[in-house]
């Protein structure tokens, strides 16, 4: 029993790392634009497919695909921003929720239309290898994903706090009108924030290709778990996304490991309701509560 508990805990923390990485992408977009990007889970699917295309062409390991995926996702984000997000800047958040969900559905089914429904895999020796610590096993791909998440989160933290661009982004997040008056190009800041968010979703997709099959519906587990992670951590807070992601990963790991393999979404759904009852603004939220 203890073995099952500790093993579930470890795998929960590790898969929580991917939720955290994905959640940080959503958080950056929300932090700057005050809008939740519901299409991120389909952008993740496209990240997976870009990785697969790279593998199919070059035959290289998926981690070599990082520059390619970053460029492709950046281009995708730019197109999405110009066509869909920009006309909606300044409108209410309901229409943004609707548009990004429509986009999510569109991108997912576009993937299905282009690549078909049969699952694709990217074979590599890393896929099955693992690290053994005592009697517990850590899957190597999950471990790499977790480390990559830590590195990227620190990079974002440094970007926001140490660079001029980061200061401009934080100023825009604080009050766009004032930022514009101070000479910050807010449109450009929005574009960059959106691109970073989408690239994070794509990288999350790349990192999970050794773990999951590449199918158009692979993103659906992120549609619930990762968004709940962002909410319980406190919307718009990077620390919150990190902690929330790991908490949700652990809850999901424990529920699937100790109760039933199918009940993961129920566990995290209950966790969401519980957190919203007790602390509606999330762990690190600054209390945007308005009742």
């Amino acid at each position: 029993m203890t073995w099952v508990f500790v093993q579930s805990l470890i795998s929960g923390i590790l898969s929580g790392g991917v939720y955290a990485l994905f959640g940080v992408g959503i958080t950056i977009i929300f932090g700057v634009m005050k809008m939740v990007d519901f299409s991120a889970c389909s952008q993740l699917v496209w990240g997976m497919y870009f990785t697969w295309i790279f593998y199919a062409v070059t035959g290289l390991n998926c981690y070599y695909a990082i520059p390619f995926v970053v460029i492709c996702m950046g281009a995708l984000a730019f197109v999405i921003f110009k066509l869909i997000v920009r006309p909606l800047l300044g409108s209410n958040d309901t229409s943004f929720i609707l548009v990004t969900l429509g986009l999510s559905y569109f991108l997912q089914n576009l993937a299905e239309f282009v690549f078909g429904t049969d699952p694709k895999t990217i074979p590599s020796p890393i896929k099955t290898s693992s690290i053994q610590i005592g009697e517990y096993t850590i899957g190597l791909p999950r471990f790499i994903a977790f480390c990559a998440m830590i590195v990227l989160v620190f990079a974002v933290y440094a970007l926001l706090n140490k660079t001029t661009l980061g200061r401009a982004m934080r100023a825009t997040a604080e009050k766009p009108e004032v930022a514009q008056m101070l000479g910050i190009n807010t449109k450009k800041t929005f574009t960059i924030a959106f691109m970073i968010g989408v690239i994070f979703a794509g990288i999350s997709g790349l990192l999970i290709t050794p773990i999951y099959y590449v199918t158009p519906t692979s993103g659906s587990m992120f549609r619930t778990a990762a968004y709940i992670a962002v909410i319980i951590g406190g919307l718009g807070d990077i620390k919150g996304a990190l902690v929330g992601g790991i908490v949700i990963g652990v809850i999901e790991g424990l529920v699937t490991g100790m109760i039933s393999n199918d009940l993961g979404p129920v566990g995290i759904g209950l966790a969401l309701l519980l957190v919203l009852y007790i602390r509606p603004q999330g762990f690190f939220g600054k209390g945007e509560r308005r009742a």
Binding site: V36, S220, T224, Y227, I228, I231, P280, E288, R290
Partner: peptide, 18 residues
């Protein structure tokens, strides 16, 4: 419903899945 923003939408997605 005590909250304002995307909370309701996220909760309904989660609930639908559950």
């Amino acid at each position: 419903f005590r909250l304002h923003g995307p909370y309701f939408s996220v909760a309904t997605i989660a609930c639908g899945e559950a």
